[in-house]
């Protein structure tokens, strides 16, 4: 069912990581990704709480960009490793990206629409 690349990557408990080198852990790459997701979630909560009451538009913009950036990295980790987009048919990436691309354009457009008197978008 699964091809050799998939089996070699996902069934092995030994993972080679940049900087760290080769490590052996139950679940291999899946457990490493889970660890990364946990660390990133803690980092997210810290950024959200530490910069919550710090005033200034620049700080707020940094907070929003940092939080969304971390969320996107977490989502990509799940899609890339857990949903196997890294090793599966590349066409699946297109199937996922096409609606995302359309929706991002639509949301950016909506955010750009000025609010009318009394909250026109309500």
């Amino acid at each position: 069912m699964a091809d050799n690349t998939h089996e070699n990557t996902h069934h092995s408990d030994t993972v080679t990581l940049p900087l760290v080198g080769s490590i052996t852990v139950y679940g291999g790459i899946y457990t490493v990704v889970f660890g990364a997701l946990g660390v990133l979630t803690v980092l997210e909560v810290l950024v959200a709480e530490l910069f919550k009451n710090v005033g200034g538009e620049a700080t707020n913009a940094f907070r929003v960009i940092a939080l969304m950036g971390i969320a996107v990295v977490k989502a990509l980790l799940v899609v890339w490793f857990y949903m196997h987009l890294r090793t599966d048919n590349k066409f699946f990436r297109v199937v996922l990206m096409f609606p995302l691309f359309l929706v991002i354009i639509a949301v950016l457009y909506l955010i750009g629409v000025p609010v009318g008197p009394g909250g026109g978008y309500r």
């Binding site: 089996e7 996902h10 889970f34 997701l37 946990g38 799940v78 857990y82």
Partner: peptide, 18 residues
Amino acid sequence: FILLMSSWAMVLALRAIE
């Protein structure tokens, strides 16, 4: 955290059956 952990359990379930 619970949902992230459930995703991890899910891939390990798939790995086990494979």
